[in-house]
């Protein structure tokens, strides 16, 4: 897959190819092949982690006290999912890394989240657009993963699917209210969806890693989730009296570590303590 973001330099591309096999560039971290399952678990965990991290930024600043509590609940669910997936990833890798090691000691190129979740919060409409698109996808993904042949993944999915159904419903409620609210809210909701539309395709892309796991019954074919997603999004946008955004050229790259500029800043903030005091336990 060609890198789609112009900020990536040729040297980085070479690194990213290595990253695909090795996962980390930190000095002292072993760079070795660790299998498709490890990579897949990072994708699942990083999606939840990065979106959860974004949602913590809202805490104390939401449009109403009740919304503050709702967003924190979603954030807590996502951080919980991230812990489960990343701990399992560490276990699968078998090199002694746990969820925290993976969350706080990988650099941009080793993160496997999709580009959508790393986008900034923007205003409330933009946050809701991101949540709506992501949770709608994640719901159908987790529904299918409850049947994964890897029982550990099936168990995490079974727990998380209930959380995510609520996220998807809450976000849909807000898309409808903002879309069919005031002129200003409608404009903001249109802008919010517009911002994220470039990143929708990536959520449904599959590659050799996922295809091999799908054949083994561990993962699910993301392409198969697309039809249901389009139907749900279509229904909610119709209720919200919103037009479907124009389809721009899709941006991809997150799954191989080619992220946008935002992720580096997010990680710099998130990882600052464990990076500054590498010997400390918190």
């Amino acid at each position: 897959m060609a890198p789609s973001l112009p900020t990536i330099q040729p040297g980085d591309v070479a690194n990213a190819e290595k990253a695909r096999a090795g996962g980390s560039f930190d000095a002292g971290e072993a760079v070795e092949h660790h299998g498709a399952l490890f990579d897949y678990l990072l994708r699942l965990g990083d999606d939840s982690l990065i979106l959860g991290q974004r949602l913590t930024e809202w805490c104390g600043h939401a449009p109403a006290l009740e919304i503050d509590l709702s967003l924190a609940n979603i954030g807590l669910d996502l951080i919980g999912q991230a812990s489960l997936f990343l701990n399992l990833a560490g276990e699968v890798e078998g090199k002694g890394r746990d969820g925290d090691r993976l969350a706080f000691h990988r650099d941009v190129l080793a993160f496997r989240n999709c580009l959508l979740v790393e986008q900034p919060n923007g205003d409330f409409a933009q946050t809701i657009a991101r949540q709506f698109l992501f949770s709608t996808m994640q719901l159908s993904l987790f529904e299918r993963l409850t049947g994964s042949s890897d029982h550990r993944i099936a168990e995490i999915a079974a727990k998380a699917v209930k959380e995510v159904r609520y996220h998807a419903e809450l976000a849909s409620d807000w898309v409808v209210r903002l879309g069919d609210g005031t002129e200003e809210s409608r404009r903001r909701m249109v802008d919010g969806l517009d911002w994220f539309w470039r990143f929708v395709d990536e959520m449904f892309q599959s590659d050799e890693i996922e295809q091999s796991l799908t054949r083994a019954g561990i993962a699910v074919d993301r392409a198969e989730l697309r039809q249901g997603f389009d139907a749900t999004v279509g229904n909610v946008l119709r209720d919200a009296t919103l037009p479907l955004p124009e389809y721009p050229r899709a941006l991809t790259g997150g799954r191989i570590g080619h992220h946008g500029e935002h992720l580096g800043h997010l990680l710099a903030t998130m990882q600052y303590l464990p990076r500054t005091y590498p010997d400390a336990v918190w």
């Binding site: 009740e66 509590l69 709702s70 609940n73 809450l170 409620d173």
Partner: peptide, 10 residues
Amino acid sequence: ELALRHARDV
């Protein structure tokens, strides 16, 4: 509808 969601979340 949102009152119910808020009640749940609070």
